[in-house]
Each structure stands twice: as structure tokens, then as C-alpha cells.
């Protein structure tokens, strides 16, 4: 399941900064390593690697993608129960539960608060028990 990093790695640290489960370790300008116990195979590191140095579980290098083409979570507000699992799983704090609009408003839901922080790892989609989140590009 886990991804691996090849010797093409230049130690730019881009992948370790964006890994949604803090699975990538390494010093600047040195080869990075993926903790296979923690890797969730989300592909974020592949999308961001400038050298194509990340291989997926079948050995494919994948493709670098500009940020505009990364998928983003779309929340179906009528399905969402505001249980907060998505918010808890997102270490970049991109997703939040909305504030009540008035005193006593119970109709709150998850929403993408910081699109810039989102890496499109789809962990929120995977964890949502009500399938209220779908990842979409654009």
C-alpha cells in the first residue's frame, strides 16, 4: 500500500510539508523517507514532487499536478451532521464546522474554510461516516 521515495529525491521537503498524516521524514537536501506504517497512499506527495521521485504501491511515478487541479472536498450540507470527524482528521485545519447564524441555530455543517491549506488528500471524504463529502476538481 505504502508509497516510496527513490534516489531522485533532492530533499526539497515539499512532500513532507504537505503529507496529511506526517508520514514523511527527512532533512533538507537529503533523501526523504516515507513511514510505511503511516502512509495512507493519498498521492499528495506524488502530485507535488518536482522530480517524480515518489513511486506508488505498484511502482508508478504518477504525475505532477498544479494546485489548481488538486481535488477539493465538497460538502453536501443536507447530509452532514457536523460530527467533526473531517475537521479532526485534517491536520491543515482546512475544514471547519460552520458557526451558527443566530442564537440557537443548530443547522451547522462542515465546510472548506481554507481552500489554500487543502492538499486534496481526501482523508475527510474517506472518514465521513455519512458520505457527505465528495472530492471534486475545480
Amino acid at each position: 500500500m505504502a508509497f516510496t521515495i527513490t534516489e531522485n529525491c533532492i530533499g526539497c521537503m515539499a512532500c513532507s510539508k504537505k503529507c496529511p498524516v506526517m508520514a514523511i521524514d527527512g532533512e533538507k537536501k537529503k533523501m526523504h523517507i516515507i513511514n510505511e506504517k503511516r502512509c495512507v497512499a493519498c498521492g499528495v506527495c506524488q502530485r507535488i514532487c518536482p522530480k517524480g521521485a515518489v513511486l506508488d504501491s505498484v511502482g508508478s511515478a504518477g504525475e505532477r499536478l498544479p494546485k489548481s487541479q488538486w481535488p477539493k472536498p465538497k460538502v453536501n450540507q443536507s447530509l452532514c451532521s457536523a460530527c467533526g470527524i473531517c475537521m479532526d482528521v485534517c491536520i491543515f485545519e482546512a475544514i471547519k464546522i460552520s458557526y451558527p447564524k443566530f442564537n440557537g441555530d443548530l443547522k451547522v455543517f462542515a465546510y472548506l474554510d481554507e481552500p489554500e491549506h487543502c492538499v486534496g488528500c481526501s482523508q475527510c471524504e474517506k472518514m465521513c461516516p455519512l458520505q457527505a463529502i465528495k472530492m471534486e476538481v475545480g
Binding site: 451532521s81 457536523a82 460530527c83 467533526g84 470527524i85 479532526d88 464546522i97 458557526y99 451558527p100 442564537n103 440557537g104 443548530l106 451547522v108 461516516p129
Partner: peptide, 18 residues
């Protein structure tokens, strides 16, 4: 409390009751 000092309601992870 709800009329005066409450900011909002919230909940533990995974809880729809909040």
C-alpha cells in the same frame, strides 16, 4: 446560559448530538 453567555454548541468527535 443559552440566552446570555453561550457562544455556540459543539461536540466530541463523531457526535451528531453536539
Amino acid at each position: 446560559l443559552a440566552e446570555t453567555l453561550l457562544v455556540r454548541n459543539s461536540g466530541c468527535i463523531s457526535c451528531p448530538i453536539r
